[in-house]
């Protein structure tokens, strides 16, 4: 089974040289720490940065330089800054090659819910609806089940949707899956996790073809 860092490391293997990438809040942010050797990617932050760098050293924080999670960050050499309309032109206009974000639920048709629990939690969608509606390549980083052990990979989402039919791939603590017309297509198992365990933890349609390899982190 993977921890959050393991999930981030596995998603980092999906990065390709030359890509512009938007990372959501939470596990997706960690992906930036595990870029494979020999490739260069640029991170887009929807509040107006292309070429976002790591956190600043203590004492060098700049209140005028934050990421979309409102954390203090730095700029890499060659970075640029822009307004929110330009930022979402990059996103809607499909100039960003990969979006990684978290989810509360996803369905086997690629629907995603991550912005609202009616009556309980309403933080808002932020940029998530724009991101999922337009990105060609969306990877979701999430936990396979909730604290009660119930699946969050469903036949149909129960929470208000963020987007429909948009998620292409999901990486959880248990597995890597593509989302196809037939449902979740199991590609890899996490170390020490059995196919049976993944089947038990997945409520949505799960396609298992032949031997499923263990992922290499």
């Amino acid at each position: 089974m993977l921890d959050k860092i393991g999930i981030a490391k596995r998603i980092a293997q999906e990065l390709r040289d030359g890509w512009y990438v938007n990372l959501g809040i939470g596990i997706p942010t960690l992906v930036a720490n595990y870029i494979p050797e020999g490739i260069q990617v640029e991170f887009q932050s929807e509040n107006g940065i292309l070429g976002m760098g790591p956190f600043p050293f203590e004492g060098e924080e700049d209140p005028d330089l934050i990421n979309a999670g409102k954390q203090t960050v730095t700029l890499k050499k060659g970075a640029c800054l822009f307004d929110s309309a330009t930022s979402f032109a990059m996103i809607r206009g499909q100039h960003v090659q990969l979006t990684v974000l978290g989810a509360m639920e996803i369905s086997d048709q690629g629907d995603i819910a991550n912005w609202k629990i009616p009556g309980k939690m309403v933080k808002g969608m932020g940029g998530a609806m724009d991101l999922v509606a337009s990105a060609e390549n969306i990877i979701v980083a999430m936990m396979h089940t909730n604290k009660a052990g119930e699946s969050k990979l469903l036949r149909k989402c129960t929470l208000p949707l963020t987007g429909v039919g948009c998620v292409k791939k999901v990486v959880t603590e248990l597995a890597v899956m593509d989302i196809t017309h037939e449902g979740f297509h199991l590609l890899e198992r996490a170390p020490g996790v059995s196919v049976e365990q993944i089947i038990r933890s997945t409520e949505g349609r799960l396609i298992v073809h032949g031997d499923i390899p263990e992922m290499r982190i």
């Binding site: 956190f55 050293f57 203590e58 209140p63 005028d64 934050i66 409102k70 954390q71 203090t72």
Partner: peptide, 12 residues
């Protein structure tokens, strides 16, 4: 005041 909402740093 320019308050910082999430002060995040890395060690040297």
């Amino acid at each position: 005041e320019k308050r910082i909402e999430q002060r995040t740093v890395r060690s040297k």
